[in-house]
Nucleic acid binder design. Structure first.
Length: 254
DNA sequence: ATGGCTTCATAGTGAAGA
């Protein structure tokens, strides 16, 4: 089973690239973030024709998540139960017995912003929900755009980013709080190249210069660890014409 | 250098992303 996550920064713009990526990679599950598309405009037909079923929770302009899968999805859940949030950032479904939780964690903008406080409160709610979700679904993968670089090695210039949003201690502590639920960052289960990133700014030729951050993750429960076979970031997708600023992250399971 | 690029939105001295 191959599962993946990709912040596509507009599914409308990126649909041809998503279809091409599905054809080339044949994932069992692909979680999308920043679809920026209302549900009424979701491209069912094109994805179905490619062999994929889809659940989705979108809105105009911002946010929006979708889960694409070859196999049927059960117990689809939209949003974090009990959290009042207009922003469409969470979608969960069970596929082949694995609980897939797709998240677009808030960006936070800057540490002195209200959005940063929203991010931290949101992460607290996510963690509380996942603690319960893990009891129901021991085989669980949390995939998505976390908007957190967990360690300095996930940052091209740790000194420049020190204390900044995406790298601040409270955000990293929130990431570790998720890990403490009994989860692991699947990317780090395997040897990886130094300076492996999943996002590069559109500006300043950042991709060509590999000035990036690793902020997209696939974190898995203990029960799934033995099944993990390989993890990688697909930098090729970032080289496309008119790419998303994020690259897909892929985990292969037995 | 608080810029730079891309998207969606509207026609803004734009907003937001990361």
């Amino acid at each position: 089973m191959k599962i993946a996550t990709w912040n596509v920064n507009s599914l409308k713009v990126r649909l041809p690239q998503v279809l091409e990526w599905l054809a080339q990679n044949q994932p069992d599950v692909l979680c999308l973030q920043e679809t920026k598309q209302e549900d009424k405009n979701f491209p069912h037909a094109e994805l179905n024709a490619a062999g994929y079923q889809a659940s989705f929770s979108g809105q105009k302009t911002y946010n929006g998540v979708a889960i694409l899968s070859l196999a049927p999805q059960q117990n689809v859940q939209v949003g974090i139960p009990g959290l009042v949030d207009e922003q469409k950032r969470v979608l969960a479904a069970t596929v082949n017995g694995v609980r897939i939780v797709n998240v677009y964690i808030p960006n936070g903008q800057s540490i002195d912003s209200d959005k940063y406080q929203y991010k931290l409160a949101w992460l607290k709610a996510l963690t509380a929900w996942l603690e319960a979700e893990l009891k129901t679904y021991p085989q669980l993968a949390l995939l998505g755009d976390y908007n957190i670089a967990p360690e300095d090695r996930d940052v091209h210039d740790p000194q420049a980013w020190a204390g900044q949003v995406l790298c601040s201690e409270p955000e990293r502590a929130a990431f570790q709080a998720l890990i403490k639920l009994g989860l692991q960052d699947s990317f780090r289960l395997f040897e990886q190249a130094e300076k492996s990133f999943s996002w590069w700014d559109y500006r300043m030729n950042a991709f060509r210069r590999n000035l990036g951050l690793r902020i997209d993750h696939i974190v898995v429960s203990a029960a799934l660890i033995p099944a993990c076979k390989a993890a990688r970031i697909d930098k090729e997708a970032r080289k496309a014409e008119r790419p998303s600023d994020h690259a897909p992250v892929v985990l292969e399971l037995e």
